[in-house]
């Protein structure tokens, strides 16, 4: 379905920023700046804000680390299940050359394990950024230097949500439901392989849904090596799944930016990697430096 940007509906400045981000992304890819960025490894400092009411929501360090491990496999194309990519797209399984590590220094320069833990009275959170404030949650660490990940009891049966680059710093980052975070502890099938965070960090690095958020076949995800696709796929689809006259290979439903189960998504493409690195070379240029 075509849907309006949540923030662009509410903030005209954010909409203008997004348009600017797209112009800069296109320039960065055309000039080769994105390609130069992808040629060097970028290490992103991560802080995980665990927001809990019940003790079971206070997930373990091991569960947090299991998620960081997944990000490091998926964004380096080192995930063993990339072999599931159909033969026709194996050559498109791309290494984004991005690594993630829990922060070792907090914003004041003090040693940290990169995890904050905050007790809340809230039974659950709407996807309205309320977990990102000191009232009930935890304020972000500076978005120019850290990827902020909030883990909480997200309501409405949602697994997670993100914010594109170019948005307000005070809400920048991604939010993940505790039972969809990492591969251990409270992580629950079919979302227990850490792919919700892979998908949301993809958005945070400026990737669009592979079906382009349009009703039908008229939209674009601004990436030329992903096939045109009518809508989200869910569950564990069988290859090929056709839409938008995209035969014989059909939808690239095994892409991290579709809506399939964790076990069914295994790859980014070179076009998506170019967009992410355009973002890291420019809008999010302060990270990994």
């Amino acid at each position: 379905m075509i849907r309006h940007e949540y923030l662009s509906e509410t903030q005209a400045s954010y909409r203008r920023n997004l348009e600017g981000v797209e112009r800069r992304t296109a320039r960065s890819i055309a000039s080769g700046r994105a390609a130069r960025a992808v040629s060097r490894l970028v290490k992103v400092s991560v802080v995980v804000h665990v927001i809990f009411r019940r003790e079971v929501e206070n997930i373990s360090d091991a569960q947090v680390k299991s998620q960081i491990d997944v990000l490091n496999r998926d964004f380096r194309a080192k995930n063993p299940d990339r072999s599931q990519a159909p033969a026709v797209w194996k050559s498109l399984v791309a290494d984004a050359n991005i690594e993630f590590a829990l922060a070792t220094r907090d914003p004041n320069g003090k040693a940290t394990d990169g995890i904050t833990r905050t007790k809340t009275t809230r039974t659950s959170f709407l996807p309205d950024d309320s977990m990102k404030t000191a009232a009930g949650g935890h304020a972000p660490w500076p978005a120019r230097r850290y990827l902020n990940i909030w883990v909480c009891n997200l309501g409405q049966n949602l697994l997670g949500y993100a914010q594109f680059p170019g948005g307000p710093a005070k809400t920048d980052g991604v939010v993940i439901l505790g039972s969809a975070f990492g591969t251990k502890g409270t992580a629950a099938a079919p979302f227990n392989l850490g792919r919700t965070a892979t998908h949301e960090v993809g958005h945070w690095l400026n990737l669009r849904h592979i079906w382009a958020d349009t009703l039908g076949c008229g939209g674009s995800d601004f990436v030329s090596d992903t096939p045109n696709q009518a809508g989200p796929n869910t569950g564990k689809p069988a290859f090929p799944h056709l839409s938008c006259t995209n035969g014989p290979n059909g939808d690239m439903f095994m892409n991290y930016m579709d809506y399939v189960d964790d076990v069914a998504m295994v790859m980014f493409t070179p076009g998506q990697v170019a967009r992410m690195n355009a973002c890291l070379a420019d809008i999010r240029g302060g990270l990994g430096r």
Partner: peptide, 14 residues
């Protein structure tokens, strides 16, 4: 009223 996932997975409505 139609609702669905938006571009960053936040539900939106029309």
């Amino acid at each position: 009223v139609e609702r669905g996932p938006g571009p960053t997975d936040v539900p939106t409505e029309d």
